[in-house]
Nucleic acid binder design. Structure first.
Length: 426
RNA sequence: GGAGAGGUGGCAGAGUGGUCGAAUGCGUCCGACUUGAAAUCGGAUGUACCGAAAGGUACCGUGGGUUCGAAUCCCACCCUCUCCGCCA
């Protein structure tokens, strides 16, 4: 959520920054804000008078005044008068406040000054590449991962479709074991780097999805259990953000670093034709997420470190990848700045997203009301939140199957996974 | 699912409808005493909004209602706990 005070005080700057993302007009918000402030002033004056009347009546009664005497009757009448005026004013103010809230919740975050301008993903900026020496030489002859996997019998799409519907997979035998090896390896790495592991609820309520920014705008993207005000979490970012919702953290406790392995559930509405085969785009997939609550002064450095922690996984797996920075047109709703990691997928002869590392500034903190307090200092500040996949597990498996496949149809197990899987070949 | 109890400040825990934003204790912070520490003593200690400030307003699970006035009374909802049943 954007800062209403900032919109009021630096209207032109905020409007300009938002316009880098697309067409947004803040003028209605500005007008409503002004109206609300006027009404609030009037209301608070009436309330002050009402309190005064109440106190005076109380005092006079204690001094033995006749409850039905003329002085008290006059005060009562005025009290009723004030009440009537408030009854007229309050609903108007509440209505305007609700409108402001709704507008604010629908606005995306302001891009960072350093985020490149651009209209869509074609204008993202490549930052660096890694692992050219690991690029498979015989790219043309390599099979797509779903063929490799089906041949090895390590996953099955048809049966998963029978169980649920399309865009689900059942991992079988070594496939299940490989999946488990991958996320266990990732968690071990991250916890060794100081991230605290979290296993959160996978069902989350509406307030949680609103806090991290998926609602109200993107309700189409999540599965809902509507009898219970619960949704299937689309990413661990949601529960982990809300770990500290409505909390005031001591400044000394920052930064908080978490990592979390969870299944993720996405409806993938509007992507019907895309990635219909394989592990790339499923309604349910596993992901290890890294998440940080940090002091605003450190968030840029924390962001760089987060990207490196994600890269370290790909490097350990010796999977070639590149880092791109998203332009303003491709930036996610809550982010001010995002780096995507894209892993090399020989079968499609392209790099595919395997991690997205975002700095959300105070946007989620404001929505979820997550603040910190420095002892001795007055007031509170919003924390900054950062999240990054480290990594998407299914896509990691896909990348391994493609990049590590052998001419004979077998797949070499990446060295760092061998101790987990207890074998060298699939 | 059935029965009951309860939701108050960081925690514990009071609060006859009338200076209650809220006693008290613990905790925390500052200070004094002390070589240092403990103990003891003194003081401070919720959040947000409006205001240059003085000060004002709101918040005692949530939303309504009664009243000049509600933490306190009424209604609805949400949540938590205990016991029973079921269950991995």
């Amino acid at each position: 959520m954007l800062d209403l005070k900032q919109i009021r005080q630096q209207f032109d700057q905020v409007q300009a920054a938002l316009s880098r993302r697309g067409v947004y007009d803040l003028s209605e918000l500005r007008d409503l804000d002004q109206q609300q402030r006027e009404l609030e002033g009037q209301r608070s004056q009436l309330q002050a008078r009402s309190n005064e009347i109440g106190k005076t009546v109380g005092q006079q009664m204690r001094n033995g005044a006749d409850p039905n005497g003329p002085e008290i009757q006059a005060l009562r009448d005025e009290g009723n008068q004030v009440k009537a005026e408030l009854a007229e004013l309050e609903p108007r103010e509440r209505d305007i406040k609700a409108q402001i809230e709704a507008l604010l919740l629908a606005l995306p975050n302001l891009p960072s000054d350093t985020t490149p301008n651009g209209k869509d993903e074609t204008e993202n900026v490549e930052i660096r590449r890694w692992g050219d020496e690991y690029l498979p030489a015989n790219s043309e002859s390599l099979k797509p991962h779903w063929e490799v996997g089906e041949a090895l019998g390590i996953f099955n799409f048809e049966r998963a479709t029978k169980i649920a519907q399309s865009r689900f997979v059942a991992l079988m035998g070594l496939g299940a074991a490989l999946e488990r090896a991958i996320f266990t390896f990732m968690l071990d790495r991250h916890t060794a780097h100081g991230y605290t592991e979290v296993m959160p609820p996978y069902l989350v309520n509406t307030a949680s999805l609103t806090g991290s920014g998926q609602l109200p705008k993107f309700s189409e993207e999540s599965f809902r259990c509507d009898r219970d005000d619960l949704w299937l979490s689309p990413t661990a970012e949601v529960p982990v953000t809300n770990l500290h919702r409505d909390e005031i953290l001591p400044a000394e406790s920052l930064p908080l670093h978490y990592c979390s392995y969870t299944p993720c559930f996405r409806r993938e509405a509007g992507s019907y034709g895309r990635d219909t085969r394989g592990l790339i785009r499923l309604h349910q997939f596993n992901k290890v997420e890294m998440y940080k609550f940090v002091h605003p002064d450190t968030s840029e450095a924390e962001h760089q470190a987060l990207v490196q922690d994600a890269e370290a996984i790909l490097q350990a797996l010796k999977l070639p990848y590149r880092v791109i920075e998203l332009c303003t047109g491709d930036l996610g709703f809550s982010a001010i700045k995002t780096y995507d990691l894209e892993v090399w997928m020989p079968s499609s002869n392209s790099y595919r997203e395997i991690s997205s590392c975002s700095n959300c500034g105070d946007f989620q903190a404001r929505r979820a009301n997550i603040r910190f307090k420095t002892t001795g200092q007055k007031g509170t500040q919003y924390v900054h939140t950062l999240n990054g996949s480290g990594l998407a597990v299914g896509r990691t498996m896909a990348a391994i199957l493609e990049n590590y496949q052998q001419p004979d149809g077998s797949v070499k197990v990446p060295e760092v996974l061998q101790p987990y899987l207890k074998r060298e070949w699939l």
